[in-house]
Amino acid sequence: MELTNENVLGKLIAQFGEENIFDAYDPDGIMTLTTTRENIIALIQYLYDDKDLQVQFLTTMAGIHFPDHKGRELCMMYQLHSLRHNYRLRIKVFVPAEDPVLPTLTNIYAAANWMEREAYDFYGFIFTGHPNLIRILNIEEMEYHPMLKQYPLEDQTREDKIDTYFGR
């Protein structure tokens, strides 16, 4: 089967229903769709197991923070790849900032382990069922999740910084 965005989307909607697969669009040739955190694992598992799709490669996972979207501030992006058909797709899940809980993907992809730890480190996502959800890049003592938009980038200890002429 030639995989196109339309027939993959059709297949997924047929399987999971309109209410769970929504907001599908195609910003850069890669189909992007949104689902809920209840369905994410089942969806990825389905993509993995389906004989026609064979989406069996987790390219990357990335958190995004939208502080202005009330109730769906945090977004987790899963990008998957079917090496067999050279077909990529992107799945997004939005969760509220005060409840950033997602199920873990480590049972399907070993690669998800550190990616989830990174997402926890950067954004504070809690992945239920993760074997070892601790910070990965930053020091354990760190008290905040630095990639959230409200935290400054700059190292506050810098001394030689003089306000640049035009500021930034």
Partner: peptide, 9 residues
């Protein structure tokens, strides 16, 4: 906050 993230000794 960010200022608390000082070098761990």
């Amino acid at each position: 906050m960010a200022t608390d993230n000082k070098t761990a000794d």
